[in-house]
């Protein structure tokens, strides 16, 4: 492989440069010829049509009148757009979406805040506090990452039931207030913190809590953002647990379970209403995918590929 690179790298002056090679080297790297470019575009456009169409259907369909979608040919782009479905979703009584939205926000925000607090505290002591069993505790946290949630969902459900909390909103978040991955992510961030700064702060008589909140946390803001985004999405997109908890009680629905309930409700004739519902679940996640890819990639991969 190295031979191949040597031969064709434009920036190797020692290589005898033929005419063709000179011409080639003038082109900036990675700029394909016209035929190659056309082929690329054809492939990308085809893929975009297949992958994007369901997204268009979700968003555009949510603004179309009920019944338009079953017409042939599909009238996605010539309808009378309105907020009618959103108004209907607002007033929907069989599967009320407003409490579900409140529950989803509650779940996302509480889990996010809890992860931030529990992860930062634990990671701080793992990195900055001299104490016995530090390694053991760290590996205990790591071990919890490896446990697939579905393997322990049965005992957890029985536990919540035995506490009599099935109708309590907190039962939606209680099992998820701490997370091993969060501890790992913050530990990795704290370890980048220069040791001299820490010594100086401690010499100045700076207490641990003040050192954490005043000096360490502000300096790891990108990691905090990544963890916050990741945790919020964990909560917002969660399906299995709310499904079990809300099975006996409609008011415990999150948007994710409500959307499914909406779909199974009304013999599948309320497609536009369902699409409006799905669009609501997409608002924070689409915004993050479009504008916050940086944090996403960092959050997901910091622990793994870094």
């Amino acid at each position: 492989m190295s031979r191949l690179i040597e031969q064709t790298t434009p920036a190797s002056p020692a290589a005898p440069a033929g005419r063709a090679e000179l011409r080639r080297s003038k082109r900036s790297p990675n700029q394909p010829g016209r035929a190659a470019a056309t082929a690329t575009y054809v492939w990308l456009v085809l893929a975009a049509i297949v992958l994007l169409f369901p997204v268009l259907l979700t968003i555009v369909g949510g603004f179309l009148p009920e019944g338009q979608l079953v017409r042939r040919p599909p009238g996605l782009f010539n309808g009378h757009y309105s907020f009618g479905n959103y108004v209907a979703a607002w007033h929907e009584t069989v599967v009320p979406l407003l409490p579900a939205l409140a529950n989803s926000l509650f779940v996302g925000l509480v889990i996010m805040l809890a992860h931030l607090v529990t992860s930062c505290l634990a990671a701080y002591s793992l990195v900055f506090v001299r104490m016995p069993l530090r390694k053991t505790i760290f590996w205990l946290f790591m071990a919890t990452i490896m446990v697939p949630y579905e393997a322990i969902v049965v005992p957890n459900a029985l536990f919540i039931r035995s506490l009599g909390m099935e109708n309590n909103r907190w039962s939606l978040v209680l099992p998820f207030l701490a997370n091993g991955f969060g501890v790992f992510l913050m530990r990795q961030a704290f370890r980048q913190f220069p040791d001299e700064l820490r010594q100086a702060a401690l010499l100045d008589g700076c207490g641990h809590l003040r050192f954490l909140c005043g000096i360490v946390l502000p300096s790891v803001r990108p990691s905090l953002t990544a963890l916050a985004v990741w945790s919020f999405l964990q909560g917002w997109n969660m399906y299995f647990w709310p499904l079990i908890i809300s099975s006996s009680n409609n008011s415990m629905n999150t948007l994710q379970t409500a959307v499914f309930a909406l779909k199974s409700n009304g013999n599948g004739t309320q497609q536009a209403l369902v699409l409006a519902g799905v669009s609501i679940t997409l608002i924070p996640t689409l915004l993050l995918v479009i504008f916050g890819q940086r944090w996403f990639v960092r959050g997901f991969m910091a622990g793994a590929v870094k």
């Binding site: 505290l121 634990a122 002591s125 001299r130 104490m131 005992p155 536990f159």
Partner: peptide, 30 residues
């Protein structure tokens, strides 16, 4: 120092202990 370190770990350990580690053993029992 040791007490403070353990204290900082308590929230995370309590959460994970109650809802991940203990349920693992409970699952074996169940």
């Amino acid at each position: 120092e040791t007490l403070l370190g353990f204290g900082f770990c308590v929230p995370a350990l309590a959460g994970l202990g109650t809802f991940v580690i203990f349920p693992l053993f409970q699952a074996i029992f169940l």
